[in-house]
Design a protein around this nucleic acid. Structure first.
Length: 477
DNA sequence: TGAAATGTTGGGGCG
DNA sequence: ACGCCCCAACATTTC
């Protein structure tokens, strides 16, 4: 072969990037390529917030590649035709990529591989964004896990993730570069300026990811077990969008944690293990989706197939816009709208509220999150929503219904979080901030809506719906 | 990685 | 002083 095409996908980094490392090791020309072809993903094509992120991440990747003597060739068409054409134009004899596990991406990968082989190109695939292979980790009886704890125990009994490999210092280019379109021509940017809050909160790209990791590992990680549950303070890593686009390698993060453990005490170990278990949940989500590819749209537990969901466009809209009248719910939904991100503790509450209090189909929630989250990731989104709805892997039983007042009082006792995102509540005293309808009229929020449903009634209705479904399907519980 | 209802226990007020 | 009752605190069960 006379050079390798590196097909970039959601692995937008140069550090610990196996396909790129493979291409550079061949000591022949390397042609990095990104194809924008959202049609292949259908319903799960990147949403608005993800496209905003992708625009910046691609720009950042271009910069990093140029710094080591390379480029990023950008095309807006199907990779199965583009990569073959680029191989012809540059004389490359091989294509290397990193595996994805979205059902549509698996199909796309097969299509690209076929086109490459038919054109006489060799095709090479690597595990890049996961620490453990989803088709290797198996239960004692040889089937994929559906429960997190034994899954993670098994992973922890494997060989530890391989050491992360540093970025190449120089990347040889082809004699002549193929044509490329500007990132700006892909139409990823919002046409109206709704992205000020995103710009304020995030720095997409590899450097931004490394900074977030360092800040977290040197700070909040030492109190992670407690701090991660408090939405009003910065106790989480904020790495999710960077991981979603592959701007940081989970192996790199894993070993960065490990190196800090050498110097730490036992309590650091406890907190670090909690954090690594969250990386584990991310792995678990991908393993479940890879092995049960229909779950992006269908419940993993078949008895939920005919669950009596309601259709209520008005309620759905109130939830989306943060106008349900429940402070914790509204704060979360407004944080999401403004920054493209929501604290995990609050994600659990808002999703429980949508599927239980409002009894809207979890896919409505999944679609909204997909469009608004900068960390939208098909596996985590699917796992999270099915977990909340009670129909997925290791799911909360349907009757586990979060009480938005109690969750607020437990994890945002002073109301700092809800007041930050719901300014109508500024004057409500702390002890009533999660139930403002009980506050005296003078201090109650001006213009803040009354609860769109009564908590106790909604809870009863949700439990009744489950009962009706069980009676119909004859489910055991 | 719940909440609410129900059951149990034990300290203290009181007749 | 004793037993009764109340109820807070905690535990268990149920949804």
């Amino acid at each position: 072969m006379a050079g390798t095409i590196v097909w970039f996908r959601n692995d937008l980094r140069v550090d610990d990037q196996p396909a790129l490392g493979f291409a550079v090791a061949a000591r022949e020309p390397v042609v990095p390529v990104f194809c924008w072809h959202p049609q292949a993903a259908g319903r799960w094509a990147p949403g608005g917030a993800s496209r905003w992120w992708l625009h910046r991440s691609l720009t950042s990747l271009q910069d990093s590649l140029e710094k080591v003597g390379s480029r990023l060739v950008v095309r807006a068409a199907d990779p199965s035709t583009e990569l073959v054409a680029i191989a012809k134009a540059t004389g490359a004899g091989a294509v290397a990529c990193n595996r994805r596990f979205e059902p549509w991406a698996v199909e796309e990968e097969a299509r690209v591989e076929k086109a490459c082989r038919e054109a006489g190109l060799s095709f090479h695939r690597f595990l890049c964004n996961l620490m453990f292979d989803p088709f290797v980790i198996r239960t004692g009886t040889g089937v994929p896990y559906k429960v997190f704890t034994p899954f993670w125990k098994n992973c922890m009994a494997q060989e530890p993730p391989a050491q992360a490999k540093p970025a190449p210092k120089a990347i040889p280019g082809p004699a002549a570069w193929p044509t490329s379109v500007p990132v700006a021509s892909l139409g990823l940017q919002p046409s109206i300026a709704w992205d000020a809050g995103l710009s304020e909160a995030w720095t997409p790209g590899e450097a931004g990811a490394a900074r977030k990791a360092k800040v977290f590992l040197d700070g909040p990680m030492s109190d992670y077990a407690v701090g991660r549950d408090l939405p009003g303070s910065p106790g989480t890593s904020m790495l999710s969008p960077h991981l979603a686009w592959g701007e940081v390698s989970p192996r790199r993060v894993w070993h960065a944690v490990e190196s800090r453990l050498q110097a730490g005490d036992k309590s650091l170990r406890t907190n670090a293990d909690k954090f690594r278990a969250e990386l584990g949940w991310r792995e678990f989500g991908w393993h479940v989706l890879a092995n049960f590819p229909t779950t992006a749209e269908n419940p993993l537990r078949p008895e939920f197939r005919d669950f009596p969901w309601q259709e209520n466009a008005k309620a759905l809209k109130a939830w989306q816009r943060g106008r349900t009248g429940y402070p914790l719910i509204d704060a979360g939904m407004r944080q999401l709208w403004h920054t493209g991100w929501m604290h995990n503790r609050v994600r659990m509450s808002v999703s429980s509220f949508l599927v239980k209090h409002l009894r809207q189909h979890w896919l409505h929630g999944a679609d909204w999150f997909w469009d608004t989250l900068v960390d939208a990731d098909l596996a985590s989104n699917t796992l999270g929503w099915q977990w909340s709805a009670g129909c997925g892997a290791d799911a909360a039983p349907y009757f586990r219904i979060f009480n938005p007042m109690l969750q607020g009082e437990k994890f945002d006792a002073e109301g700092a979080y809800v007041k930050r995102w719901v300014p109508e509540l500024t004057k409500v005293p702390a002890d009533l901030v999660h139930r403002p309808w009980e506050a005296p009229l003078a201090t109650a929020g001006s213009g803040y809506p009354a609860p769109i449903v009564d908590h106790a009634q909604a809870r009863e209705a949700a439990l009744a719906a489950l009962k009706a479904c069980n009676a119909k399907t004859g489910a055991a519980e």
